[in-house]
Amino acid sequence: MFSRDTLHLWILAGALALVGVGFFTVRSLTIPPSFGQFGHFRGAALETAANKERKLTTRGDCTACHDTLKHEMGKSHERVHCIECHGDGKAHMTSCKDAKAAAKPGVALTCDKTDLMPTNIKDICLHCHQDTIGRAKKHPQIKFDEHMKDNDPKDPKSPMVCMQCHIPHDPDPSNEPDGAKEDKDDEAKPAEAATPTAAPAAATPAVGGAE
């Protein structure tokens, strides 16, 4: 066989070979299959990232059905996302999808409209329009109490007080007081799903709730 010295060398070589095999086995087991496909990362991760579930309602989701909405929106609130006031509308969209699937000609769609209309418009408005240090001067802001004194609305304690003078979809000042009432009622209709005579309904339930 080998001389003693040669044997030592062979043992050493064998040990090194084992280490090498071990290294490459562990390496192949621990590195994911698609690693390096596009660079120094797991290629499959791109797919996972791209196909993650989308949660937030997009503007497109709303305008897909409500295509007239963009015409109703005034210049100043053009960019305000529907969900800011109307919530994400998931229930509404699901029910509408179902309703459309079961739709019959001549019968109006019945979509779930609960929770679509805000019950506290004051908080929503003040969210952006409360006088705050840091906001650009040109952005319309109010100090609520002073604004109430200055304008003296019918029911200043109502959570829907802003809508007594302003139309949320088009709050341009030229649109305000007298004309506002009818427009406001128009807007409330979809929420109330009501007859044309239910005109003052928009404010009444909220006012009642506040008192």
């Binding site: 791209a50 989308r54 937030l56 997009t58 503007r59 497109g60 609130h77 960019r79 305000v80 996302h81 969900i83 800011e84 952006c128 952005h139």
Partner: peptide, 13 residues
């Protein structure tokens, strides 16, 4: 999928 990031989509200004 051709949409905007959520923050861009909701930004009102």
């Amino acid at each position: 999928h051709g949409e905007k990031p959520a923050c861009v989509d909701v930004c009102p200004t």
